[in-house]
Design a protein around this nucleic acid. Sequence first.
DNA 1: TTGTACGCGTTATCAT
DNA 2: ATGATAACGCGTACAA
Lengths: 395, 395
Amino acid sequence: MGIERSVRVAGPLGVAGMTGEAGVTSGGEAATTSPAGEHGRGDQPPGTVPISAQRRSRLVDIAEAVGVHVSTVSRVLNGDPAQSIRPEVYERILDTARQQGYRPNALARALKRRRTGALALVVPLLRNPIWAKLQRGALQRARERGYVIMIMEEPTEDPRPPADYGYLVEESRADGLLLATPLRIPEHAAVVNGPPHVYVNRRGPDRGHDVVMDEPGAIRMLLDCAVDLGHGSVALLDGPPEVDTVYRRVGAARRACAARGLSLAVRYAAPTEDGGYDATTRMLRRGPRPTICGVGSLNQVFGVLAALRDAGVEVPGEMSVVSFDDDECLAYLEVPVASVCMPLSELGAAAVDALIARIEGAPAGDVMVREPMTLVRRGSVAPPPGAAVAAGPRE
Amino acid sequence: MGIERSVRVAGPLGVAGMTGEAGVTSGGEAATTSPAGEHGRGDQPPGTVPISAQRRSRLVDIAEAVGVHVSTVSRVLNGDPAQSIRPEVYERILDTARQQGYRPNALARALKRRRTGALALVVPLLRNPIWAKLQRGALQRARERGYVIMIMEEPTEDPRPPADYGYLVEESRADGLLLATPLRIPEHAAVVNGPPHVYVNRRGPDRGHDVVMDEPGAIRMLLDCAVDLGHGSVALLDGPPEVDTVYRRVGAARRACAARGLSLAVRYAAPTEDGGYDATTRMLRRGPRPTICGVGSLNQVFGVLAALRDAGVEVPGEMSVVSFDDDECLAYLEVPVASVCMPLSELGAAAVDALIARIEGAPAGDVMVREPMTLVRRGSVAPPPGAAVAAGPRE
DNA sequence: TTGTACGCGTTATCAT
DNA sequence: ATGATAACGCGTACAA
C-alpha cells in the first residue's frame, strides 16, 4: 500500500483541446526505492521495467507474515478438504491474504498443474455476424467453467488444417482447440492422437469431434413453410459447397424435396452481397423460376434482394425469400425478410462444454445442439403467384 | 518424418515458434497408422488420460540426447548472440530439437521472463460489426508482434470500471489490457498505478491511455459533403451520449456547424434498429426538418431508413442519409446508403502497438489513428429539396 | 566454449 | 495439524 511510484510524465497531451488535468500517469519506471517499512525487494535486473507498478504478493509473503510455511498457506487458499487446519491460523492466513491483495499466479499454477485454463478459439475473419454470436456464447460458457478464451484468426482463403493449431497446446498456451472455421478439410489432415479439440459448426475430418446445429431441421422449417403456403418449386442459394454447413443443408434439401415431391434448384455462390446478387441474376435467367428461395447467409440476402429488385421481380409476390441467418436488421428492410433463427450462441456454449469434457478425458462423441429453432415469418414470404387468395391454405 | 518444424529461432528475443508459421506441426504425425516397428514413446502411465497424446519434448530431453547441458540447449535455441557455440554442437542441438518436435513451454518461459505474451481484449457483447473489425485488426497485429489475444466480455449493461480487469494482469494471465468498451467511465474509476492498459475507441478516465479515431474528421467529411450539395440544415442521429465516440462526434458537430453557419439537430438513441426508428419518427414530427442526416451506427441506419419510408419521406429527395459505420451491405439497399469509412482495423492494430509500448515501459501518451478516411457517396445523398438542379454547385 | 546453480510461484508428497 | 522437499520447464549470472 501507498507506494506512490508515479512519474510525472510531461504528457504529450496532443489531443484536441482536452485540458490535461496533469493526471497521474503510471507506466514510467522511477528509480525510487520503496519507502521505509516496506520490504523493498530490488531484484529487478537493472534496465528492465516492471510489468506492473506494485509488487504482487506471493504465497511466501503471506507465509512470512503469518509465520507459517508456504505449503500451509497453499492448502488453506486452495480449500484443501483433506487436511484440517487450526481455525486460528486459517483465519489469519485468509486475512493477510485479503489484506495483501493476494492473487494466485496463473502461470506458476498452470505449470505445476499442467493445465492452462485457456481454450483457443480459431475463427475465420469473416464479416458474417454468426461468428460474433458463436463467439459470444463460447465466451460466456467458458467463463462459467473457469476458462479464458484466446482467439486465433484463420486466414479466410487457404484454410489451414486443424493440426496447424496444435502448437498452441504443445506450447502449453491452451488446453484445447475450438476449430470454428467453416471449410471442410480433406480427410488426410485429420488430427489423430493430437491435442483435445472440437470442430464447431462443421464436421471435421476425424469423427467424434463435431459440434453442429440441426441444419436438416432448418431446411425442414423452410420446406414446411413453403408447402404450407403452397409452393412447389424451391431454390436454395447458399455458400460454396466447400463450406460444411452448406454441404449439409444442400444434402438435406435434396433428400427432403425428393421425399415431398418438391422441385429444387441449388445455387452455390460466394458468401457475400456480390455472390448473392450474381447467383440470383443467373438464376432468374435460366429455366423455370422457383417461387421461394432460401438464402444461406445474411450478406447474400442483401445481394439477392437487390438482384430481384433490379430484375423487377416482386417480393413476396413473385418470389418469397427466407434467410438462414437471423438478424434484427432483416425486420427493417424494404420488405421485411423472414428468417430461420438458429441457436448460435448455444452452439458456442455446447462446443466449450464438449471441449472441456474432452480435456478432462471424456470419450469422443459428436454433439448436435438441439435448442429449438424458429422460422420467423415476415413480409418476404407469401403464397406463390398463382395460388388461392390471401390466407394460408391450411387453416 | 521429414517434417518442417521450424524450431528455428528468430531474433534476439527468441520468439521460437511463436508465430504459427510452422508448417505441419508434430500433432498430425501419425496420419498413417504406423506399421509396427518404429513408434518411439509409449510411456503413458496406464489409467491416466494424457492432456496431449504424445509426450512433449523439453529442453532436458534434447540435452540428454545430444549429451550437453540444458543451459547450452537453451542458449542455442534462444539464439543467444553473446556467447558463441561450437558449430558442431549447435547443429546437433538444432537437429535433435527439430527431430523431437520441440516446442518451448510458454508457461515456464513466461514464468521466468515475467511476461506472458498475451494481451486481454475487453469487448462488449454488441452486434455492431465495428467490434469485429476492430478485433480483427488487433488480432492481426498482435500476431505480428508475437502476442496472443484473449477475449473478455464486458456486460453491455452496467459496464465495469477498467480496474475490474486488472486481475488478469495481477494473476499473470496477460501482460496488458485493451479496453474496448464504448461507455465513458466516471473519473474516480481511473486506473492509477495499475496494470498496463489502453482504451480503444474511447477516452478513459485517466489521460494518456487513449487510442481513438479522428471523429471530428469524420464529422468534417459529413459537413463537407453537406455543404458541397447545398444543405443548410443537418441532423446527427447517434447513440447515447454515454458512449464516448458519440460524445466526441456531437461536440465536433456542434463546433463545426457553428463555425460554418449550419443549423444542427442532435438526436440520441439506442444503438439499435429500434432506436434509429423511434428517433427518426420523433425527429420528423418536430420543428423544421433537416435535409441531411448523419447516423451513428449501422443498426440505427436500418431503423432510420424504415422510419423515413414509413413516413413517406423520400431518400435522398427529401432527406439525405450518411452512415458512420461502413458496411458492404449498405451498397445493396433499396437506396444505397453513403457512409464514412473509418479505419477500424487500423485502430485495433494501433491499440496493440500502443499497449505493447506501454508494457515495454514507454511513457504514456494518447494516440489518434490517422489513416485516411473516405466518405463513400452513394444514392442516399443528393442536394436538398429546393436546390438548383442536378449537379454539384461547386463544380 | 560449456557447465553450475539458482530462482520464477505454485502444488504434491512425503514426513513429523 | 503443519513443515520440509522436490518438482513443473526454462533462463541466466557466474564460474570453470
